[in-house]
Amino acid sequence: MRLAETVTFGGSGLDRAAHLRGDADRLAELARTGRILPVWRGKPLCLPDEGLGWVAAGSPVLAKAGPLVFLGLDEGRAVFAADISDWPPEAGAEGVEQGFLDTTQQRHPALDPEFCFAELRAVMTGLSPREAELAATAKAVLHWHRSHGFCSACGAASDMAEGGWQRRCPACAASHFPRTDPVVIMLVTRGNSVLLGRNAVWPEGMFSLLAGFVEPGETIEAAVRREVQEEAGVRIGAVRYLASQPWPFPASLMLGCAAEALSAKITLDPAELEDACWLSREEMVTVMAGRHPRIRPARPGAIAHFLIANWLADRLD
């Protein structure tokens, strides 16, 4: 495996067993002995410091669950995800969006108190590669079902099918599939320096690599050049692909690229960035060590952190 594939949420070799998705009877049989990951409003069930929290079929936690989504076979055992977003937590325990990161945790009365529903970004670095892939898949697919309950062709309510990997319209017979939106994220360098930017809504001191959605009819390389030019006014020459990361917030695929800057002057688009700057390799070492007076390091587990750390170590491949 290339180093580039070790990024958080990267491929863990999960057997997704797509050949089983169309066999509803077999999936029902597997669910009776498999493991099920409950997800509440995008938050997977967790055992802090131990990983994901799993339940068995028939658990009272699943009383308000929607249809199960088949995630695949983990070491031969079937694993599923269940959306329990209709479960109402006790008064005062509702999930509250707290700025950039929701730090609240919810506990279900049917489970031991050490179990909790937690924001995936807050626990992702404590998950094994397999758990991270399962959690990312579950969060993304379940969000798609909650936000795409009606046929985009005729407007009728659609039904989950193929183990959760399709929605079918009973009115016009159209089939719909989970969405993944490609996003380029760029390690833009010029000599010994790297380009960082920050969005106005981010926490104080948070900077990261520039990123943006790939537009229809656009190549990855063209998207890199356009986004950097639009956001920071910096012209880009050579572009090469480095690594990718599923990013289920809610449904992106981050395409990490190295880009060589042809100009250094920064001209901000204030609608995109509040600030941007060039930092030398030596300054970035200080940032990543948490000792910079103004700039905080990128979030561990995110591809921005992965790309910067490996650039500093001179081991991007």
Rank of each mutant, 00 (worst) to 15 (best):
P170L: 01
G58S: 03
R77A: 14
P248S: 11
E218H: 05
T267E: 00
R190D: 03
A251V: 05
A157I: 13
R281G: 13
E221R: 05
E231I: 09
I295F: 01
E50V: 13
V224H: 03
R26K: 14
F207I: 03
S147Q: 15
R146P: 04
Q105P: 13
W144N: 12
A304H: 06
A171S: 15
R179P: 06
Q166T: 09
G197E: 03
I303F: 03
A243V: 12
D102C: 15
S244R: 14
G13V: 10
P67N: 10
Q245N: 03
G212N: 00
F306A: 02
I185N: 04
I236Q: 14
Q245C: 05
P113G: 08
L45Q: 07
V55L: 05
A302R: 06
A65Y: 06
A57N: 12
A276S: 01
Q229P: 04
T286E: 00
A81T: 09
F249P: 09
L111Y: 13
W144M: 07
L253H: 13
G256D: 07
V287T: 07
A298C: 13
G197R: 09
R32L: 07
F213T: 12
A174Y: 01
P60A: 06
I303P: 04
F207D: 11
E230N: 11
F306K: 07
V188W: 03
E97A: 15
I303R: 04
V183T: 11
G149S: 07
A31E: 09
H145Q: 09
V79P: 00
A93L: 13
A4M: 13
T219F: 03
D23I: 07
D269F: 06
V234L: 00
D102F: 02
A31M: 03
I220C: 03
V214S: 00
P129A: 11
R146Q: 06
V188I: 13
A93M: 10
A140Q: 13
Q106M: 00
R26V: 08
E131K: 10
M206H: 08
G95M: 06
G163H: 02
E204R: 15
L27W: 05
E29C: 06
G149V: 12
A28R: 14
E231Q: 14
S280T: 15
I308M: 07
A238D: 14
G212T: 04
G301A: 12
V224N: 02
R2S: 12
V55W: 01
F177N: 00
F117H: 12
T104H: 10
P246I: 09
V234K: 07
E204S: 13
I308E: 01
R16G: 04
D181K: 14
H305E: 08
V285L: 00
I295P: 09
R299P: 01
